[in-house]
Amino acid sequence: MQRVNMIMAESPGLITICLLGYLLSAECTVFLDHENANKILNRPKRYNSGKLEEFVQGNLERECMEEKCSFEEAREVFENTERTTEFWKQYVDGDQCESNPCLNGGSCKDDINSYECWCPFGFEGKNCELDVTCNIKNGRCEQFCKNSADNKVVCSCTEGYRLAENQKSCEPAVPFPCGRVSVSQTSKLTRAETVFPDVDYVNSTEAETILDNITQSTQSFNDFTRVVGGEDAKPGQFPWQVVLNGKVDAFCGGSIVNEKWIVTAAHCVETGVKITVVAGEHNIEETEHTEQKRNVIRIIPHHNYNAAINKYNHDIALLELDEPLVLNSYVTPICIADKEYTNIFLKFGSGYVSGWGRVFHKGRSALVLQYLRVPLVDRATCLRSTKFTIYNNMFCAGFHEGGRDSCQGDSGGPHVTEVEGTSFLTGIISWGEECAMKGKYGIYTKVSRYVNWIKEKTKLT
């Protein structure tokens, strides 16, 4: 034993070699072989497995989906700052455009905790909710729209109204504003409101030439003092309507412009014939205590009207009353817009006519005020429907199939267009061939041609 100890002390290297040989010859039971080890760690190889990531292109799944990435790591994937920024906006807080917040056709661009709407022409605001041009839906104005110097929408209202708090709607500024039905039992019968379409306001006024200088022999019209197929109006439903009495009662109609003036057809009036105007009328054979009678003290036909040349060209006249009318729910003026808007309103496509005229061709006159909704007829169809001249200051309205029309005794009465609950004068009943005849239409004086003249002559002093 002493000898062994001496050998170990003198030859430590020998001992180490012996131990190493023993270990190498022993069977290893701690580690699995290569094949079995792979069965336990069965993990798919990654895209760049075996390579240094710093030297390969980034992978979106590896960089940002398996674990949260930084902007720089995302930049490695896209290799483009702009594309990385677009991805980053949604990656950080989701897609803010998912709810489609942009209105009126706006395009949404996502941002971090926010979004941006790219608005089409005519709109602005956070969600493109603000109209900035009158060309689109009248700028959301209830009545009139004008573009300011910086191309912003400025709404306005006709006389007797003021802008509401929203700067879009119009509200009454006087007790009985024009064009409004205020009798409670008839307010439910107000005709369907007309909503502004998209309009090209630059070209809204037709490029028409008034044929002022045409000389033409007097034409022989049949029954051209021209509501057939209409309905009984309720008291106060058309408070701007008046009836004219002269040699015979209810020979023509008219509309209240203001307390002192009536507008009617020029062919209705004769110099030297006494005319009485009755406002607030409903049943011409009954006294309903809503009527107001006034005498006409002055007749002003349009300066281009000449019955000797043509009885229905420039067929418009103004009547001055001896005493002002007292405005109330049964006696209310009709609204008159400017030339541009009167023309736009007419193009809405349908209007209402009213009167006490004959209820059928050569038949009896109506006792109760009649009204009828009539569609506008395109000019080409209008011209083809008659052998008589249709001037540019006239328009056609009615039904091709016949059966409904204005008729004798309705002449001078109103053709009105309702705009968001307020009625505007767009025409004056003038003439036609018979009444409600198939293929024939009622012919009306186009008020847009005469609004400046009306307003100039009827100013209240």
Rank of each mutant, 00 (worst) to 15 (best):
I334S: 01
F238S: 03
R294L: 02
D150Y: 08
S220G: 09
S11M: 14
T271V: 07
N304I: 03
F176W: 08
C128E: 01
T290Q: 10
S11I: 14
Y444H: 03
D93S: 13
S182V: 09
M8V: 06
S365N: 14
V181S: 08
Y341F: 13
K387W: 04
Q90Y: 10
T84Y: 04
M65C: 04
L367W: 12
G402R: 12
I214P: 12
I454D: 00
F388P: 06
Y352T: 07
S114L: 05
F121D: 03
E67T: 09
I15C: 06
R3E: 06
G402A: 15
V277N: 01
L163W: 02
G122K: 03
C128N: 00
N42H: 12
N393V: 02
V368H: 12
K347T: 11
F345K: 01
A37V: 13
I214H: 06
P175N: 08
R162H: 12
E82T: 10
I40L: 13
C117Y: 01
M394R: 03
T389F: 10
V263S: 02
G21R: 05
G160M: 02
G94C: 03
T16S: 06
D249V: 07
G230Q: 08
T389P: 15
Q370C: 05
R191W: 08
V326C: 07
Y115M: 01
A279I: 01
S406I: 11
G412L: 11
I316P: 00
I297H: 06
K168T: 05
C97D: 00
V374K: 03
Q2Y: 11
G253K: 09
S148H: 09
R83T: 15
W261G: 00
G254W: 00
G349F: 07
V419N: 05
C119D: 01
G272P: 12
K457G: 05
K457F: 07
T194N: 09
V243N: 05
L325M: 03
E116F: 02
N306D: 08
D322M: 03
G50H: 10
G246L: 04
L189M: 06
P375V: 06
H415Y: 09
D198S: 13
P177A: 09
R162Q: 08
F31Q: 15
S204K: 15
N36P: 15
T417Y: 02
R373F: 04
Q96G: 15
N393W: 05
N59H: 10
A164N: 07
E208S: 15
L211K: 08
K168N: 07
L14Q: 03
F224R: 08
I17P: 02
I210P: 07
R358E: 10
C119P: 01
S406M: 14
H289C: 08
R373G: 04
H282Q: 10
T271C: 05
E61Y: 07
V326N: 08
I336E: 00
C108L: 01
C252Q: 00
L41N: 13
N203C: 03
A207F: 07
F360D: 15
R226Y: 13
K109T: 07
G50Y: 10
F87D: 15
V243Y: 15
I7N: 14
K109V: 05
Q370S: 11
A233W: 07
F395T: 02
P177V: 04
Q408W: 13
I316R: 00
I428V: 09
S184Q: 06
L376F: 09
K440E: 15
G349I: 02
R384N: 15
T287H: 06
E171D: 11
